[in-house]
């Protein structure tokens, strides 16, 4: 029995059907999947009670590989489907996997309203600053001046700050990390899943094959180095002079607070009404 590989990922992947996966070599999506699995494993959840819902995009292909209750939906609509699942079975853990385009362009409305309701979903947003799946078009997070196939002369639009958007909409847990910081990522995933309310984790990710190539970022290793060197913990932001902060990816938990959760509020309302009806 020597050398039988038994990593935790092997207990969670749907090995029998779904490999090889669709992602390019060097893509961050696999890193995110690994961190999710390790977070789930360390939480010791019964996976029959975990649902993973995604939209459409490279990142949204994730659910097919993982042995949970999985739902791969429509472009932009993952949060809306997840809302239905969660409201009907509030005891289930519902994780949403989504991309920058999926969640902040076509699905932006669902994001802000789910955050406002504070429904207990864990949204993991893989932000690769591009539409990966469709071959490199501009997304709401494509940086100003960056190149995309639909912005061949450089992007003239300002980009979204996803975490600020979620904070503004009322999300009760918001965090940002990068694909380089895998341990941090795993910890944030776990905190978010344990958080009783709407949580969003932005994972700044690498799409070396499309975004990287269009914008001459070098390969995956260079992009990973950039994440390492060009990011700072938010705890350090205040201590640094402003010029050291500009252009840096700020990592950390931006908000973690308890406020009434939507499924609980609904259950309370339902109980109140039923009591009044004398049932």
């Amino acid at each position: 029995m020597a050398n039988i590989p038994q990593k935790v990922v092997h207990q969670y992947l749907r090995h029998d059907k779904k490999f090889p996966h669709v992602w390019c070599a060097g893509c961050s999506n696999g890193i995110v999947l690994g961190a999710i699995i390790r977070a789930l494993a360390s939480m010791n959840l019964n996976r029959d009670d975990v649902v993973m819902v995604s939209g459409i995009g490279c990142s949204s292909r994730m659910p097919v590989y993982i042995d949970l209750n999985t739902l791969h939906t429509l472009h932009g609509r993952a949060i809306a489907f997840a809302t239905g699942v969660k409201l009907h079975k509030p005891h289930m853990k519902v994780i949403v996997i989504t991309g920058d385009g999926d969640c902040t362009a076509i699905g932006g409305n669902h994001l802000i309203h789910a955050a406002r309701r504070n429904i207990d979903l864990t949204v993991i947003l893989v932000n690769n600053n591009i539409y990966g799946m469709t071959g490199g078009q501009c997304s709401p997070t494509t940086p100003h001046d960056a190149i995309a196939t639909t912005a061949p002369y450089g992007n003239i639009e300002p980009d979204f700050n996803i975490c600020n958007l979620a904070l503004g909409a009322g999300a009760s847990f918001v965090a940002r990390t990068t694909a380089f910081h895998v341990i941090e990522m795993q910890n944030y995933f776990q905190s978010a899943m344990e958080h009783p309310g709407f949580s969003l984790i932005e994972v700044v990710s690498a799409c070396p094959v499309i975004f990287g190539r269009l914008n001459k970022k070098g390969g995956a290793p260079q992009m990973m180095k950039e994440f390492r060197d060009n990011s700072i913990p938010i705890t350090a932001v205040e201590k640094l002079p402003p010029e050291k902060v500009v252009g840096k990816i700020q990592r950390g938990i931006l908000r973690q607070e308890i406020r009434p959760e939507y499924c609980n509020a609904y259950a309370e309302l339902s109980a109140r009404v039923q009591e009044k009806e004398g049932k």
Partner: peptide
Amino acid sequence: IASICAITGASLAGA
């Protein structure tokens, strides 16, 4: 759009 998606999600959860 959210409405049809939510009822479909709920149905998959058994509603």
